[in-house]
Every structure is written in structure tokens, then in C-alpha cells.
Design a protein around this nucleic acid. Sequence first.
DNA 1: TGACAATATGACCGGGTAGTCATATGATGT
DNA 2: ACATCATATGACTACCCGGTCATATTGTCA
Lengths: 195, 195
Amino acid sequence: MPKDTFINLSEEKKKRIFDAAVKEFSTRRFSDASINQIVKNAGIPKGSFYQYFADKEDIYLYMLEEISKDIHEIIEPINLNSGFFETVMQRAKGTIKAGKTRPEYAKIGALTVIDNSDFILQLLRASNEKYIEIIERDKRRGLIKPEIDSAVVIKMIYIFVFNEYLYSGFDETLYLKQVENAVQIIKQGIAVHQD
Amino acid sequence: MPKDTFINLSEEKKKRIFDAAVKEFSTRRFSDASINQIVKNAGIPKGSFYQYFADKEDIYLYMLEEISKDIHEIIEPINLNSGFFETVMQRAKGTIKAGKTRPEYAKIGALTVIDNSDFILQLLRASNEKYIEIIERDKRRGLIKPEIDSAVVIKMIYIFVFNEYLYSGFDETLYLKQVENAVQIIKQGIAVHQD
DNA sequence: TGACAATATGACCGGGTAGTCATATGATGT
DNA sequence: ACATCATATGACTACCCGGTCATATTGTCA
């Protein structure tokens, strides 16, 4: 977490630094992002950065927290009672909605898919666990075949959804259509069919 | 393509340079790979490299060609009459077989998935077209639902198959099991079912 | 006002990168 | 033996990076 010297900064300055971080982390993967660029964009000296944050991971986590606060005001919270497929589509639509007002946020997420640094992998693992739980619940509910490997499904969805956004050139219509296709295919593949 | 000065080199020296390229490109993505590292590992001066190759793309393409020659001696050629799913599994098994004797080759392929540089994207696009054709043929044969978006399927398979190899820590058994699961799910999702 | 602590600052360090170029070496033909 | 040409070489340029640190500035309290 940021140091006290950062916390005590004026809101204006904190905003400037946050914006600079968003700009950099939405352009380059965490691994490639440059602190030099961030300080340049924020208009603060290099030395000051290290008065505020321990390192690159520190400011990245801070940025994610701020984004999380911001995003909750834009998109409706995910309905915890929804099944897995609905949750994924809700998530995809949320990505688009957020992407419309804050395109950078969606890009930050998309860039995590092509970053296999230990730091990013650990972040993703935590986020995936939530979805694994939903799949397991759907299995208990008799909605998803019990023999399906949750981890495989998560990977298919996660990688596809984000990579697609990255490669579809952030074209929302195309993206949503492709995700819908992918979800349909997987749904057909793993759902219990009533015949 | 490499310059004549390279072509004229002794086989031994060419091999050394090829090996150095394989070592570097199997460790870091094309975008991150370092020519300095390659020349260090090959034991040639920096200046010589530029006598042999135009740039990083040049040696990468040369390396791919050499690998392609080498690989055809290891794995059986893909049966052109197979359906899409069999082709994918053949490909996955080929990856493993090649990975057993030449682990670096598989890693080079895996690293392309997390590289979205223009150069790599262009290479992948060409390779994907082959598979799109196979899917289209299966549609005509009545094996795959005609309404399925081939591009979506390709992306699911391609990204998953390679990413999985990257993240499964190159554990062949785990990898093959996961790919089989994924293919099963997609097969269930896109195949025409005889009921 | 003076003293002390908190904060700001950018030059600097050691490391990396791609690519160039003047010079050295070696081979070849006369 | 000499000239010519192909090739070999590594120092060098011009850039990037993360991180440090001595010094300057500002704020606070007595």
C-alpha cells in the first residue's frame, strides 16, 4: 500500500498520479510498464515516486483498488444467485459498459492475460477462485455436468473473454458477439441437457 | 532471410547460432528476446550478427524454418482427411512428442500466445487460416453446426492449447488431460449430434 | 527566531537494449 | 608479393530501465 506521504497528498495530486498510472498500465502490460513514464505523465520527480510507493507493484495495487471503487459506481453488482453462464455474460457486459466510459480500465484487464509474471498470475488466481465456486455451485444445482473440470472451464472463459477484447480492437459489438458465441459453445459443452 | 555471409558459414557455426536463438526465443517472448543474449550464447561478436541477419525478425523466421524441418522428422504429418477435433488432438500430441525431445520448441510456440506484437500476430493469423479451412470442411461434411463462428472456435482452441502448456509448467500428462477436457467441451458445443 | 523533522528533488549508479562503424584480419587472384 | 575484396570484430552511440541518495526546501512546534 502507498506510504503516508502519498496519503497526505492533495486530492488533486493524487488524482494526477492515479491518472498517470492508468494511462501507463492501460498501454503496456504490468511487466513492461515504466515508472519513468508514470512520473513523467504525472509531472512529479522520480524521487518523489519512491517517497509515495514502495515499487511498481505497490502503485499497481493502489490503482486497482481505486478502479474497483470507481467501477462499482458504473456497473451494477453481479447477482450472486445467477448461474455461471449468466455471471460470465454479466461480467462481459460490465466490461463493455465500463469500457464505454473508462476504456482504459478494460484495457488494463485485457493486458493481464498476456502477462505471465508471478505478480500478475497470483492476482488472476485469486480472481478465478470466485468463478470456480460458482461453477461448483452450479454442479450441485444440477446445472453443470459434475465430471467437468472447473479449472479448464475458467481458463477457457477467462482467457477467451479478455484476449478477445484485446484482439477485437476494443470494438464492443464485435466483442460481445464473439463472447456470446464462445459462451454458447461452452454452455452447450458443459451444461446438463434436459431432453 | 539470412544474408549470404551467413549461408556461407560452416555448419558448425550455423548450428551454434541456431541453438543460441532457440535458447533465447524459448525463454523470452519474441518481443522481449535480446540479440545481445543470442550473440553471447552463440559466442559471436555483435557486429557479426548484423553481417548475418537484418534484424531480430530475420533470425526468428530463419529459426522457425529450421525448426519446421527438424520437427517433420520427429512427428508424423497431420492427416489431412481427419476432422477438426482429431486434427487438434493430433497437434496437441505432436506438441508433446516434440516437447519430449525438443522441449524448447514447444516453449517457443507457447510464448507466441502472450505476445501481441504486430509481427507475431501476423504469423499466427497465417497459421490459423489452415484450421479455419478444416472447420469449414467439417461443416460441409455435416460434422459441425453450420452456424458456428469458425474464428471463435479457433481462438478458443489455439489460445487454450498453448496457454495451457505454458501454465501447466510443461507437465505433459496434466497438459494432455486438460487439452482433452477442453476439446471435449468444445466438441460437445459445436458438433452435430446424432440423436 | 531557531531547531528539528518531513518532504521534495534530480543527478547519479549500474544495468539493460538495438544498431553502427572504423579498423583488423583473412582469402583470392594476378 | 601485392592489391583487392569479403568478412570479423568490439568499442561506441544513443537510448531505455529501476532504484538510491545527498542535498534543498518546506512545515511545525518551542
